[in-house]
Design a binder for these strands. Structure first.
Length: 214
DNA sequence: CCTCTGATCTTCT
DNA sequence: GAAGATCAGAGGG
């Protein structure tokens, strides 16, 4: 009957995808489309920058040392669980828990290239003067998509309001992905230097590009 | 383009 | 009482 399902209706990323390790998910999310439904309208953007947070061992992760509190509980959810936290008392940051239940690994979404609902995003982010500034940072994209802490525990695998559409299978070619140190985690000593941040090379929506990034 | 700084509040010491 | 997975505006080059 409808043999063109993959064309008319993009496939969303499923449980199997989000149960992979954080580095695999962080890399494979690049170039996929994050969709937020707001009153029946699509707000969407291509994911162009991510960071991996590696569970209880990772000094830069909120779950470090097995800290399982009301705040970090969503990190312990099954792969695909949404984790939003308030940073610097001002900004909300969007993550997806990865791996299985009780394994608090996560991927932070750090930047989007806006694709749909751009006018509405500009309304939500009056400070952004150009489209390139709309979602070029984790706090910015959460504001542009109207995502706050009330989104905690949303399941991106089943949610009708927040999910990721698969625009391509597998990772993009290696030469299109830059691996770099994570941003703002210098306090975490040796973990700060590891290349756990990934972004699309030469994409103008990426939050920060530092000399030496490969 | 870059560097510096204030804002604002939850969490943990 | 301090620090933090950040942002925007001001000022200088």
């Amino acid at each position: 009957m409808n043999s063109r399902r993959s064309i008319t209706k993009p496939v969303r990323l499923d449980r199997r995808f989000f149960r992979q390790d954080a580095v695999s998910v962080a890399r494979a999310l690049l170039g996929q489309q994050l969709v937020r439904m707001e009153n029946g309208r699509r707000l969407a953007g291509l994911i162009v920058e991510t960071e991996a947070y590696l569970g209880e061992e990772d000094k830069a992760a909120h779950s470090f040392g097995g800290r399982r509190t009301n705040r970090t509980e969503p990190m312990y959810g099954d792969g695909g669980t949404v984790y939003v936290f308030l940073n610097y008392g001002i900004h909300c940051l969007l993550n997806f828990a990865v791996q299985k239940m009780d394994q608090p690994h996560a991927v932070l979404i750090r930047a989007l290239e806006p694709t749909e609902g751009i006018e509405r995003m500009q309304q939500l982010r009056p400070a952004a003067k150009r489209t390139n500034d709309l979602c070029s940072g984790p706090g910015k994209l959460a504001a542009a998509l109207a995502i706050d802490r009330s989104w905690n525990h949303e399941d991106a695998v089943t949610s009708q309001r927040l999910f990721v559409e698969r625009l391509h299978a597998g990772d993009l070619p290696d030469d299109k992905i830059v691996s770099a140190a994570r941003i703002g985690v210098d306090y975490a000593a040796e973990w700060a230097a590891l290349p756990l941040r990934f972004y699309l090379r030469d994409n103008p929506h990426v939050s920060v590009v530092r000399a030496g990034d490969r």
